[in-house]
């Protein structure tokens, strides 16, 4: 089979790129323990609002018995709920978020908080926000016609004000 020289060159380039990208993924997965969000904790997305953890009254920031903080949120077309949340700066926070409908991704620019929110599973992220200010939660997985309007507000405030 004849393959043109230029075509052959591009086949090699794409193969090398694929190997490099697989290498980068493996390096960070093994070396820095970066892995897909949470530990496959299933939940029925269609009945999310009827569940105890993701019921409306239970969403938001809460102090646990051991003094640690948990932020519980829901991603639903088209927003993250509660729409505005306040969290203290430089404090470890466990964020638990679930989708009420389709695949979403939550990303807060200028922080290290980003995760996919897969329907049927709870995504869990442990993070510490470093700077105070108003930030925007954005959806970064196309989720429907209103995807580009899917945002909510994260207010990172001084520890003393909470």
């Amino acid at each position: 089979m004849h393959i043109d020289q230029t075509e052959k060159k591009w086949i090699y380039i794409t193969l090398v790129m694929t190997v490099v990208m697989m290498g980068v993924l493996t390096f960070y997965a093994v070396g820095s323990n970066i892995h897909p969000p949470s530990g496959f904790e299933p939940i029925d997305s269609t009945r999310l609002h009827l569940s105890e953890e993701f019921g409306e009254d239970n969403l938001g920031l809460k102090k646990n018995e051991d003094g640690s903080l948990t932020l519980t949120m829901v991603a639903a077309r088209y927003g993250f709920y509660p729409s505005t949340v306040e969290v203290p700066v430089q404090t470890p926070i466990k964020i638990r978020i679930a989708s009420a409908d389709v695949l979403h991704g939550v990303h807060v620019p200028f922080t290290n908080f980003a995760t996919m929110v897969v329907p049927g599973y709870i995504s869990e992220v442990n993070t510490t926000f470093q700077k105070t200010g108003d930030f925007t939660l954005l959806c970064n997985e196309y989720c429907g016609l209103g995807h580009d309007h899917m945002w909510s507000r994260l207010k990172i405030v001084p520890k003393s004000s909470l």
């Binding site: 088209y78 209103g146 309007h149 899917m150």
Partner: peptide, 23 residues
Amino acid sequence: YGDPKRMVRACNSCHGQNGEGGM
């Protein structure tokens, strides 16, 4: 367009491009 400053989403993002209803 809604109004992002007030966290007001565009009507048509949920209620359909022509107000015909969404999911």
